[in-house]
Design a protein around this nucleic acid. Structure first.
Lengths: 217, 217
DNA sequence: TAATAAATACCAACTGGTCGGTTTGTATAA
DNA sequence: TTATACAAACCGACCAGTTGGTATTTATTA
């Protein structure tokens, strides 16, 4: 139990009684949460600090007490929410399976069923933000590259394990397939958002699942 | 001939000599071009009208003489540039082939070789804009949906023709595969932009070409 | 008291958009 | 051919509102 807590990246729960630190960390977390959702919906540049402090229920002074500027707030908010999502949704399930193709299929299905806390019509946070910020901000860009590499690496490792266990064809390159899996996932969520039509996702998923099956021995 | 001219929506080519109309349409086109590239690079909301008129070499008054507001300018600029690109790159080549899988492979290769006038590190204009504007603007959204449907429809029709001619497996659903082709293309360009690394595209393309080959009889 | 946290008031810069007025090209008519 | 009338094209100062960010003051608690 203690080990589980240690392994998470989530901040240790603040003490229930009011104190200087507790109050401060609550305000800080409220700012992180509000910033993440505002940035998720509006994008970083269009996200308004005034709206963020309104949602967080605090003032400009508080914000600039906890963060030096908008850039730092955005980066902190993104890291606080997005890394955990990829970890829980992709990396952990893939780490303990010998049949990665089935696992990938299951994960994608969960997105389609909207069990991942992501509204497909609003797009994937990773997708939304990396599209906007890559190429204009080095810090965001390198964070996304790292996250992407962890994501792709976890899929590739699982595929290689599948090859060893006989659940995946041995003549495919795990790295290349892993990259295509991530790209397809991103592309499908992107098309759903672009058309505002969930059926597009169903159609693409049908073909994508056929592709996954073609990777079996 | 007259019929052909009537069918196009393009403005009749402006006379070379200077005249009221010629000057006006040149300014208008300069605004459309400047707006498109500014919007392509910055996104619609972050695109600055002041920057657009600076690039176009005209003034606020000119801009608002030709367009009622930023929204109309953006829509006109996008329609002026993006529809033509999809037509030339995808729809026309696919319309006259009986071997669509080879054609698709060739088109994607041209993107990778940067022969399409698109810098992969800056992303695909369709991708960039549809991500930003879908869900927050009905006009942009329906334009993108239409364009997407034409795009997907052209691929599906070519695939069906391939099935009839024996170059494509008969047990696949052209609509679903076409959707996945578009989604994968979008996803791959998206990942290249996100990581700012062209090699990611190479890896994904390798796996994607294997997928295309798996669709042959 | 000392230090942290939060609130208030404010700033310059920039946003999309407006408006009165000027320039430019063309059609008409003497 | 030249003067006149007119409208399209263009200009740039200006508007109200918003942006991210700052300086100062007040409240809270160890």
């Amino acid at each position: 139990m203690a080990e589980n807590l240690e392994r998470t990246n989530l901040p240790v729960a603040a003490p229930v009684h009011d104190g200087r630190l507790a109050r401060g960390s609550r305000t800080r977390q409220a700012l992180l949460d509000a910033a993440f959702f505002e940035i998720y919906e509006q994008g970083f540049r269009s996200a308004s600090l005034n709206e963020i402090i309104r949602k967080a229920g605090c003032t400009k002074g508080s914000l600039y007490h906890h963060f030096p500027d908008k850039h730092a707030l955005g980066l902190a908010a993104v890291a606080d929410h997005m890394g955990a999502h990829i970890d829980q949704t992709w990396i952990e399930p893939l780490a303990r399976t010998d049949d990665p193709l089935t696992s990938i299929r299951l994960i994608i299905k969960r997105y389609a069923n909207e069990e991942q806390g992501i509204d497909p019509l609003r797009g994937c946070p990773f997708q939304n933000l990396s599209q906007e910020m890559s190429g204009i901000d080095k810090d965001f860009q390198s964070y996304f590259t790292d996250l992407f590499n962890r994501w792709r690496g976890a899929i590739a490792a699982a595929l290689a394990r599948g090859q060893a266990k006989g659940t995946v064809r041995k003549d495919i390159d795990p790295e290349c397939v892993a990259t295509l899996v991530v790209a397809s996932h991103q592309g499908i969520t992107s098309m759903i958002k672009a058309t505002q039509d969930r059926n597009v996702g169903q159609a693409a998923a049908t073909a994508f699942f056929d592709y996954l099956d073609s990777l079996r021995p």
